[in-house]
Every structure is written in structure tokens, then in C-alpha cells.
């Protein structure tokens, strides 16, 4: 880099180390102070942040559990929890059922006497089953609420283990849709990027350590699988 001054090289390295999180606390704090007053250093840092972020494209997305969004919203707008259903208007009644379920997981199960009802007009369905029929889950996807309704009809998790649901689209790595609940019925919220690949995909359930795969990819045996079909 003959056209660069040694000082600029030092800053390129320092900004790179900062972006990678390799600096000590003191070094980071000093760097942040310089960032505030040196536009050129900000540009060097921003270039690293952009370039390095491209690395995350090799990390498989993992859908967080549906119960998480209500928890976050409760922390963001604590006074709103009782009026929550207003936010769900655009999702219609089926969406409301999901909201109530997610909220229920948060405020406690005593609100519920009955599990949520399956969608009346699902866009897609799947029968996720073991070859010998010892484990069967019926899946139905409601396009209006982006909710995947799962009804476990046969089989259960091994005590002390969790069952994790995966979506496999084409040759892509399996994407986690979350854990099956201990109750027979689980409802999973499907995110935008995953909805597009439901058609023609395969749903699979694997046996995982409690709390789910620690790696973001299936680690245990697949107990059941089935193709998603348009209904």
C-alpha cells in the first residue's frame, strides 16, 4: 500500500480491531472518543462494519420463539399490555388467537382453558411423521396471521430433551422455527423471509438438548419429517 501513510495504515488496523471487538476496554473507549471527532476515522470504521457484516450471510437464520415479541413489547410499552389486541386488528381474528397464546405464555397459563383452534382455511398443510407412525404432528399454516399451527397427535419428547422444528427449503441449511411446546398444540410465528420458502419445503422435527440446538443447526436425530403441500 505504497500510497498510504503509515498513520492511515495504523488507523485501518485499529478500526478493524475495534470492529472485530479485539480491543481492550480502555483501547475501545479511546477509539470511541476519537470516532466522535474524526470523520475520516468514522469512514474507515463504517467501511469495516459494512464489509465484516457480509460475513453474517453464512450464518443460518433462526426464528426466535413466538413468545419473545410480546415480552419485548411489554418492556417497551408496559402500560399497553391490557390494550394489546388493538395492535392485532390488521391480523384478523386468527392473528388474535396467536397473540392471546403468546401473551398467555407470558402472563401465565391460567388464562387458558382451551388450546388455540387450528386455522379454518390453511394455505399450506404438512403431515410431519415418523416412518413407523410413532410420532405424528399435523401442521397447518394460516397465511393471514403468518401462523403455523402444530398439533402433536402421536409421540412426545424424551424426558429431559426438547423437540425442535425445522424448515428445509431446497438445498439450504435447515432453519429453526422454534421448539415444540410440552402441550399438544404449538403455534409458531413465521417471519417474512421464511414465508416465501414454505411452498415446496419440508418440515422436520429433531431431538435436541433441553432448550434446543445450541448451534443453530440440528444436532440430534430427526424424529419426523414431511413435505409442505398447498391445501
Amino acid at each position: 500500500m505504497s500510497d498510504e501513510t503509515p498513520d492511515r495504515d495504523d488507523d485501518i488496523v485499529l478500526a478493524g480491531e475495534y470492529a472485530l471487538g479485539l480491543l481492550s476496554d480502555d483501547e475501545s473507549a479511546a477509539f470511541e472518543l476519537r470516532l466522535a471527532s474524526e470523520p475520516e476515522l468514522r469512514a474507515i470504521y463504517a467501511a469495516w462494519a459494512e464489509d465484516l457484516a457480509a460475513m453474517t450471510e453464512e450464518v443460518a437464520p433462526v426464528a426466535p420463539p413466538a413468545s419473545l415479541l410480546p415480552k419485548i413489547e411489554h418492556r417497551l410499552y408496559p402500560d399497553e399490555i391490557r390494550r394489546r389486541h388493538g395492535l392485532w386488528d390488521r391480523f384478523g381474528l386468527a392473528g388474535l388467537a396467536v397473540a392471546v397464546l403468546a401473551l398467555g405464555l407470558y402472563v401465565g397459563p391460567e388464562l387458558f382453558d382451551r388450546p388455540p383452534a387450528p386455522p379454518s382455511d390453511p394455505a399450506y398443510t404438512a403431515r410431519i411423521a415418523a416412518e413407523d407412525g410413532s410420532f405424528v404432528v399435523a401442521a397447518a399454516y394460516d397465511a393471514e396471521s403468518d401462523a403455523l399451527y402444530l398439533d402433536r397427535r402421536e409421540g412426545a419428547a424424551t424426558p429431559g430433551r426438547s423437540l425442535e422444528l425445522w424448515l428445509i427449503a431446497g438445498d439450504a441449511a435447515p432453519v429453526s422455527l422454534g421448539l415444540l411446546s410440552d402441550d399438544p398444540v404449538t403455534v409458531v410465528q413465521v417471519t417474512d423471509d421464511l414465508r416465501a420458502v414454505l411452498d415446496g419445503g419440508v418440515l422436520a422435527i429433531s431431538d435436541e438438548p433441553p432448550g434446543g440446538s445450541p448451534t443453530g443447526a440440528p444436532t440430534g436425530p430427526v424424529v419426523a419429517a414431511g413435505p409442505i403441500t398447498e391445501s
Partner: peptide, 17 residues
């Protein structure tokens, strides 16, 4: 906020995990 979450949470959760 809800839309940002729907579009990006699986990506960010993967990174965090």
C-alpha cells in the same frame, strides 16, 4: 417496530446464537 422485528429477528437471532 413489529415489521422490523418480523423481517430481521430470525437473521439477528441466528447471529446472536
Amino acid at each position: 417496530f413489529r415489521e422490523i422485528y418480523a423481517r430481521t429477528s430470525a437473521k439477528l437471532f441466528g447471529v446472536v446464537l
